[in-house]
Design a protein around this nucleic acid. Structure first.
Ligand SMILES: NC(=O)c1ccc[n+]([C@@H]2O[C@H](COP(=O)([O-])OP(=O)(O)OC[C@H]3O[C@@H](n4cnc5c(N)ncnc54)[C@H](O)[C@@H]3O)[C@@H](O)[C@H]2O)c1
Ligand SMILES: NC(=O)c1ccc[n+]([C@@H]2O[C@H](COP(=O)([O-])OP(=O)(O)OC[C@H]3O[C@@H](n4cnc5c(N)ncnc54)[C@H](O)[C@@H]3O)[C@@H](O)[C@H]2O)c1
Lengths: 210, 210
DNA sequence: CATGTTTTGTGATTTGTTTCACATTAAAAA
DNA sequence: TTTTTAATGTGAAACAAATCACAAAACATG
């Protein structure tokens, strides 16, 4: 077990995701070229930052002519290896879990929730488009679909237990919604979503402004 | 309208939130003092970082004796001004909106969703513990409860429209779940939650590991 | 009461990220 | 064809964040 749980997603990678969303938007509007300036405005960063990011990943544009959108999208896809669907599982079919399994955009981005798990048998009988299974079936599903990543949406009190079971079953990446710092081995990636913190931050900053 | 939408929550502030969660946990377990080392382990950062953060905000501990947990919690509360309840509204009572209005932890942290809004009249008749109102009542509620901050959970296509209406009605902080960069005036704070990006990042990092 | 140990507190240093400045290039205009 | 303009590309500089190193304090021990 590691002492320091790193769950930091590099900022430039986050920006690449943003760029991709913006680029898809521009493409849909009929553009096939884009200037760093315009992409920056849309993505909420400076043009310098855009060019620097592209420079780091060796994406080339045309002096005076801007960047070709499909080239950029291909390059980004290459960085993130988007050939195949990525299968994930979800644990905890409560309020937030049920919202997530119905989120269409995951599928658009080739991330498929193949099954969800819950200790509560009454959840297991409900229909959400994907099967809701007992915890005992976790390993079987993980092996069958070669799942590496899980979304964790169980109550705080159960989060570490569920994490242990996930790691035991072969999971090496967790998107964690419980406001808890999970103890995991070095090689496991954890990314924490803490909506209270986010909302509180916004409140904090609005009060600074006034 | 500003070109560069900054919606960055400073890193040390985020850590303060984490520290608070951990400190509350320690307190509940019966501790009243804590060493930077132990807090760091729980919070997933180094002991150095903990001490540095506290040093910046002038929170003092006792050489050899560690920090007094209630002192730290009071100091953090002071930084974030936690005397009063903070009222917020939510727009878009779809899958994610419904999960959020039922999230108890917001209330624990004194953030109260006083009302939600939806264009769909069929949502307006449903019961979720808080009223679901038509968009036309937004200004009235914002004024009545002195609301500054909104949670935005409408489809991407409606996000900018809804944002304009929110800002028009006096909102100056938005927690945005739509995967869209919102155009807002300089003084408005936007914090974007992009769950696709987060999940994709985790997948990306797990594939790097292998 | 001196000595050793543990822990805080913080300036100095290192590392990482963003911005700046400008050379380079390609297209458009003269 | 030459000049001007508008863009990219990237090393250097500035800035920000994290880590290091160690002095200072407090307590424990003999
Ligand atoms: N509701 C929200 O909007 C929201 C927002 C942010 C974070 N969260 C966090 O997400 C988590 C879930 O929140 P929720 O509101 O959906 O809670 P919930 O109580 O509605 O759902 C939790 C689900 O997890 C299941 N569960 C409990 N222990 C389990 C275990 N050990 N293994 C498998 N399943 C288990 C329960 O049966 C239940 O279906 C919590 O940690 C919460 O803090 C929720
Ligand atoms: N479902 C998820 O788990 C999830 C996860 C992350 C992000 N999101 C994002 O959150 C947003 C909502 O997702 P969802 O799954 O809840 O969608 P949804 O379709 O279930 O709900 C959207 C709700 O917004 C209402 N609405 C539409 N236009 C409106 C407007 N102009 N003003 C007020 N209300 C309006 C609709 O009536 C509906 O009730 C989307 O942008 C989505 O990308 C959803």
């Amino acid at each position: 077990m590691k002492q320091i749980t790193k769950h930091v997603i590099r900022n430039d990678l986050k920006r690449l995701f943003t760029y991709r969303i913006c680029l898809i938007g521009f493409k849909r509007k009929g553009f096939d070229r884009i200037y760093s300036h315009d992409l920056g405005e849309e993505a909420g960063v400076t043009a310098d930052q855009v060019r620097k990011d592209f420079s780091v990943y060796k994406m080339k544009g045309n002096k005076k002519g801007g960047y070709i959108i499909t080239d950029l999208l291909n390059a980004i896809d290459e960085i993130f290896k988007y050939q195949n669907n990525q299968y994930v599982i979800l644990v905890g079919m409560g309020n937030i879990g049920q919202a997530l399994v119905q989120y269409k955009r995951f599928i658009l981005r080739k991330m498929i929730i193949v099954a969800s798990f819950d200790i509560n048998p009454s959840k297991q009988s409900k229909r959400f488009g994907i099967p809701v299974l007992p915890m005992s079936m976790m390993r079987e599903i993980i092996d069958k679909f070669h799942v590496n990543v899980a979304i964790l949406a169980v109550p705080e009190i159960s989060a570490q237990d569920a994490t242990n079971k996930l790691i035991d079953s072969g999971i090496i990446g967790i998107l964690n919604f419980a406001p808890v710092i999970l103890k995991v081995p070095d090689e496991v990636i954890v990314s924490n979503i803490n909506l209270c913190d986010e909302l509180e931050s916004v409140i904090y900053y609005t009060q600074k402004v006034m």
